[in-house]
C-alpha cells in the first residue's frame, strides 16, 4: 500500500523541527526558509498548520512543466524535480493550486517535497505525530484531496491523470 504524509494540525505545537529536518536533509543546512514543508502560524487562534505537497494525482506541476523536469517516482508516488532538467521558469509554481512547489532563488530551480525517497524526515522529526507517514486512506489527507477536487477542472476523469 502506498504511504502518504498525513498532517494533523491539531497536534502541531509549532516547534519547527520538521522544517529543520527537511532543510538539513535536502539542503544540508538547518534553515527553515529552505524547507519544503512550512508551518503556518495563526496568531489569533494560537494554531499551527504544517503544510506541504500532497503528491496529488493531478500533478499540476508535472503537466505544466515545459521541459519534462518533474517525474513520478513509481515506488513512493512522489512527484520529483529533476534538477538537471529544471530551467527555473516557475510555470509549475503558478500552476499548482496548492502552492507547494516553490522557486529557490539561490539555486535558480524549483523545490518541492519528494518524500525523502520514502523516508520523510519531517515525519521522523515531529515529536507530536502531527506529521506521520502512513497508509494513504486517512482523514487529514482526504480533506486536502477535497481541495484538489474543487480546484480541478478534470476531476471526473482521473483515469487520464495517472
Amino acid at each position: 500500500m502506498e504511504k502518504s504524509l498525513v498532517i494533523n494540525p491539531d497536534k502541531c505545537t509549532g516547534c519547527l523541527q520538521c522544517e529543520m529536518a527537511c532543510s538539513y536533509e535536502n539542503e544540508g543546512v538547518f534553515n527553515p526558509s529552505k524547507s519544503r514543508i512550512k508551518v503556518f502560524t495563526f496568531h489569533q487562534e494560537g494554531r499551527f498548520v504544517p503544510y506541504t505537497c500532497t503528491q496529488c494525482s493531478d500533478a499540476w506541476c508535472q503537466h505544466a512543466c515545459p521541459v519534462d523536469a518533474i517525474s513520478l517516482n513509481l515506488v513512493t508516488g512522489a512527484k520529483e524535480v529533476n534538477d538537471s532538467s529544471c530551467v527555473g521558469c516557475k510555470v509549475c509554481t503558478i500552476s499548482c493550486p496548492f502552492g507547494t512547489i516553490n522557486y529557490n532563488q539561490s539555486s535558480g530551480k524549483v523545490i518541492k517535497c519528494d518524500l525523502c525517497g520514502g523516508d520523510p524526515k519531517c515525519a521522523t522529526a515531529c515529536p507530536t505525530q502531527a506529521i506521520t507517514y502512513i497508509d494513504a486512506n486517512q482523514t487529514g489527507m482526504d480533506k486536502m484531496r477535497k481541495w484538489a477536487s474543487v480546484t480541478d477542472n478534470t476531476s471526473t476523469n482521473t483515469s487520464a491523470n495517472a
Binding site: T93, I94, T100, N102, V150, T151
Partner: peptide, 14 residues
Amino acid sequence: HTQNIGVVRGLIRS
C-alpha cells in the same frame, strides 16, 4: 513574492 504563489490559482479557481 514567490512563496506558495500557486494558492492564488487555488483560491480563484475554487
